[in-house]
Nucleic acid binder design. Structure first.
Lengths: 249, 249
DNA sequence: CAGTGGTCTAGACCACATC
DNA sequence: ATGTGGTCTAGACCACTGG
């Protein structure tokens, strides 16, 4: 998996003003000038700050909103996107659904949290060297008490220093909300690769299926600002009563 | 699977001009006023036709482009999107990739083309009644001569009257290009549901794997204008050297 | 060169949320 | 009433394509 939108090799001779302003806003977001969930300045204020017309700032913010970096709310303002909110947007990255279509979100149950060293294949995916320290979280997602997904999440140890099982267990909300709140690491995009595999003994036990049962294997690399990879996650999903959903545009 | 964007139940008291113009343009596209691949009128001409400002037409066309109904080309014009073109956009709907990342597109090999009656589960998905006439196409996708995907494609018989194996085999290009050219049916969006299943004897033989091998099952419903479903497709993918790719925004 | 889409401005006004 | 984002206008100018 490659980084999203690497810088083009041949520099664009011409870069529209609104994209330059977008870049400035991205830098402010990255620097934490406005925190997740907070409002950024009003469009007219930004227009004044950058000495451009209202419409130019709007195009810049439109682009930010298209990238899910901010959320516009008419009459209220423009807010820094966050994983800590209620509602379906909190599960933007979860593509596993129940077959019956019931709009229900899973509960997360921790299996273990370990510290260790990155194996070569995973290190390559998240810009580490083989043997670099990592944190590995294993957890099960239950829908109505029935397990369907087993996740193994590998994070760079350097970015998640204080991460312990206790802190993670204490947090209410999605895991990306926790990463954002506790470590200031914001997951902005991800790439997934899916395969079908046979359940091994360990996965079978945790998911309550027979060994050898076909499972959906979902490998994800998640990226933060600048397309920097900061998480590798392998999900194993029992598709007896669930499936992976994808809308094609 | 539900239709994409069903009409909201409570009529929007206020509909922006540019969306009204977008709707008018969609109706013209649907009516075939401009054929796939052709240019639509210049923005200033459309602005004159609808008696609105340039910027308003642009927003309407922006929305069409975001929906992949048209493609903008600076200096040349705005063109009706088509599945019959070269390049990666011709494979917008194909999410199966080689593990090694080689940018190579598969060759399609027909297994058979039959006419029959829709079973209840499939009829429900593509707005038919059980027993309505359908066309069923089976084909295998080969990457470098090695089979990886077995597709079974079910189409409403009424929309695809003259479809024969010979005509399909003779067509050069993607299947959606063929549907567009030969039957005027344009696939605009789709929804997929993925599961992991064990290969049965028939699939195993066609894909060159052992019976029982875990396969990726990809169920797709494709939609044309107005969110009308017009295709159901079940793909079975051997994930030994391929995977399903998805980018999360 | 003319014609197309793409950018930018300046300002007016509308819709929504809040006080 | 005020402040926010959302729409619409009118016009100027830029960048790209092709004759």
């Amino acid at each position: 998996m490659s980084r999203p939108q690497p810088l083009p090799h041949d520099a664009p001779a011409f870069r529209p003003l609104y994209l330059q302003i977008k870049d400035l806003l991205v830098r402010s977001l990255e620097a934490g000038e406005w925190k997740p969930g907070e409002a950024i300045p009003a469009e007219l204020d930004l227009a004044a700050r950058f000495r451009v017309a209202h419409g130019t700032v709007r195009k810049a913010i439109d682009a930010l909103a298209a990238d899910n970096l901010v959320v516009r709310r008419q009459g209220k303002g423009t807010f820094v996107a966050t994983h800590t909110e209620e509602g379906p947007s909190a599960f933007r990255f979860l593509h596993i659904r129940r077959d019956d279509g019931a709009a229900e979100y899973p509960a997360s149950r921790l299996v273990d949290v370990r510290r260790g060293r990155a194996p070569a294949e995973i290190a390559r995916l998240i810009d580490l060297k083989a043997g670099d320290p990592v944190v590995v979280i294993r957890r099960v997602l239950d829908w109505q008490g029935a397990p369907a997904v087993l996740d193994e999440i590998t994070l760079p140890g350097a970015l998640f220093r204080g991460l312990t099982r206790a802190k993670l267990a204490a947090y209410q909300g999605s895991m990306y909300g926790f990463f954002e709140t506790a470590f200031g690491v914001r997951m902005l995009s991800a790439q997934e690769r899916l395969k079908a595999v046979a359940a091994d003994a360990a996965a079978a036990a945790l998911l309550g299926v027979d060994e050898g049962t076909p499972l959906l294997e979902v490998d994800r690399v998640a990226f933060t600002y600048g397309g920097r990879p900061v998480e590798f996650r392998r999900g194993l999903c029992s598709t007896a009563r669930h499936h992976y959903f994808n809308a094609l545009g």
